[in-house]
């Protein structure tokens, strides 16, 4: 699904990682681990064209990432950020906004509402929250709404950048349950959360400018 051949990954002029040859298969759950500043986020951001600072190629479904229209690629490889941004308006407005983007027009509006409600239930968010103002939500609720918003787009790969670092254990547990039990695509995540550690198919450990690709912990 994703075929990564990066000779050098840079941060500015500095080389962070060299000779990465990695493969991501459908439905695979991958955790990137390693000390801060080693290039975890820089690597994650190469997968959705947010970082071009590398030599080499990354193929997604047989085509180089750089050959895709950026918005088309980012509607298939979606990223959820550490601090979610929801914007103004009600929660429903927030969830609807990306569905109005040109790259997401294919989704069916009838099914959408049902999926929205199903995801709300999975993430243990009450339906009444749909009419609430997004700014009034707590940090944990905001992160869950951000995840629902992304999952509504049916991405093939989900990129998670430390999404549970600011959350309590309970919320972090709900989120990890939902992603592992219900989400059908591949997941590539950065996380320091011990709750998340047991469930991964494999982990990529960053060490001395290389990646060690382990099948299990």
């Amino acid at each position: 699904m994703l075929d990564i051949n990066i000779k050098r990954l840079y941060y500015g002029d500095k080389t962070l990682l060299t000779d990465l040859n990695l493969v991501v298969k459908p439905r695979e759950r991958i955790l990137i681990v390693g000390p801060t500043g080693m290039g975890k986020s820089s690597l994650l951001h190469t997968f959705n064209l947010m970082n071009q600072n590398y030599d080499g190629s990354i193929m997604f479904e047989g085509k180089d990432l750089r050959e895709y229209a950026p918005h088309d690629l980012r509607s298939q490889i979606c990223q959820v950020m550490q601090e979610p941004y929801l914007g103004e308006g009600s929660v429903e407005d927030v969830l609807q906004e990306p569905l109005s983007y040109h790259s997401n027009h294919h989704s069916n509006s009838k099914e959408r509402r049902q999926r929205m409600l199903a995801l709300f239930e999975n993430f243990r968010l009450p339906e009444s929250h749909l009419s609430k103002q997004a700014e009034q939500l707590s940090g944990g609720e905001k992160q869950r709404v951000a995840l629902v918003r992304t999952l509504l787009l049916n991405p093939k790969i989900l990129l998670l950048d430390e999404i549970s670092s600011a959350l309590d254990q309970n919320t972090s547990g709900i989120i990890s349950d939902c992603i592992f039990n219900n989400y059908p695509g591949a997941v590539i995540a950065i996380s320091h959360d011990p709750l998340w550690r047991e469930r991964w198919d494999r982990n990529w450990t960053l060490q001395d400018g290389k990646i060690i690709d382990n099948r299990e912990f």
Binding site: N48, M50, A69, P70, H71, D72, R74, S75, C78, Q79, V80, M81, E83, P84, Y85, G87, E97, P98, S100, Y101, H102, S103, N104, R149, T150, L153
Partner: peptide, 22 residues
């Protein structure tokens, strides 16, 4: 003042116009 909003829209499949429109 709000790159986070812009990057969020991009990461949800917005094109340049859609991400900058607000």
């Amino acid at each position: 003042d709000n790159w986070r909003a812009y990057y969020t829209r991009l990461s949800l499949g917005a094109n340049l116009w859609e991400a900058a429109l607000p």
